[in-house]
């Protein structure tokens, strides 16, 4: 395979997978430590109506309206979960299940009535992800990597994913110690006078933003795999907060890159016509990673 075809066909999806894996692994560790794994499940579903609405209002499959709609939907979902917990006396898990399915259903309904489905916003994209469709036809060779005109033609999804990844990384780094305390003991964080509500909302918004950005590449439901699996695997392997969070990001990126490689390029390089949905492969690897970590962790516990 020559440089041009690698750059055209493989680099964009590979980069998108890497960025999505790293971002979700980073944020997912915080969610798992907060015992809010189901929030990952909830937000990745609940952003759908916002995405559809943003799309329907502007008629564009552009990043910003969809991102804006998704963030609004995420905030509404978080508020709705709290409300259902209080008004229906439900425990957090059941309230989460009640709310996110309703949001997802509203999104499906929106897809029908807005006609978005027929135009561009394919349901398959939500359900399966379309990593393979990210291409960079303007690339002609390694020189394109420094050619501004060619770079400007990189898939739009990649830009959004990169921005969300950068914002997440900076936010987690800057709020490192408060986030650690928030995960461990939110009540004590409040006693110390930390802005608990703002930190919680910020985390939810980052997860929602990551879900939207990753949504177009790996699909709405497989975002959950990237958010939870690397974090759960690290949870079984380390007793250090830093290792958990940074390791989660690294593992997420690694799994994403490996999964993409195993799904498309590897069979192709072996001369097989078989190609596997890359997002599915990445999520499956996530489950394998957790299973392996559980086995390793058991050995470690037995040894220690």
């Amino acid at each position: 395979m020559d440089a041009a075809s690698f750059l055209q066909l493989d680099l964009p999806p590979l980069l998108a997978a890497l960025l999505a894996g790293a971002t979700c692994g980073l944020l997912g560790s915080l969610l798992v430590l907060r015992r809010e794994s189901l929030v990952a499940d909830a937000l990745s579903h609940a952003v759908l109506p916002g995405i559809v609405l943003g799309f329907a209002l502007t008629g564009l499959r552009a990043g910003l309206p969809m991102l804006g709609g998704a963030l609004v939907a995420a905030l509404l979902a978080v508020a709705a979960i709290g409300m259902v917990q209080r008004w229906a006396r439900l425990e957090a898990g059941a309230a989460t299940g009640a709310v996110f399915t309703v949001f997802f259903a509203v999104g499906l309904l929106g897809l029908e009535v807005s006609g978005a489905r027929s135009v561009d916003l394919d349901l398959d994209c939500v359900l399966f992800g379309q990593l393979e469709t990210l291409v960079w036809p303007q690339a002609t060779g390694w020189g394109s990597l420094v050619d501004p005109a060619a770079l400007a033609a990189l898939p739009r999804q990649l830009g959004l994913m990169a921005v969300v990844a950068a914002v997440s990384a900076v936010a987690v780094a800057v709020c490192w110690r408060p986030l650690k305390l928030l995960c461990f003991d939110a009540g004590y964080a409040a006693v110390l006078g930390l802005p608990v509500r703002a930190l919680e909302t910020g985390l939810a918004l980052l997860v929602a933003a990551a879900a939207v950005a990753a949504f177009e590449s790996v699909g709405s439901i497989l975002v959950v795999a990237l958010l939870v699996c690397p974090a759960a695997a690290m949870r079984l392997l380390t007793d250090r907060f830093g290792t958990q969070v940074l390791g989660g990001a690294a593992l997420g990126a690694g799994l994403a890159a490996l999964g993409y490689g195993l799904a498309g390029p590897l069979p192709a390089a072996l001369g097989s016509a078989l190609s596997v949905n890359a997002a599915g492969m990445i999520g499956t690897l996530g489950g394998v990673a957790v299973a392996l970590a559980a086995l390793l962790g058991r050995h470690r516990a037995a040894a220690g």
């Binding site: 780094a173 709020c175 490192w176 110690r177 408060p178 650690k180 305390l181």
Partner: peptide, 8 residues
């Protein structure tokens, strides 16, 4: 956590 800077 509140007294010290948040990162580093």
């Amino acid at each position: 956590t509140r007294r010290a800077r948040w990162f580093g």
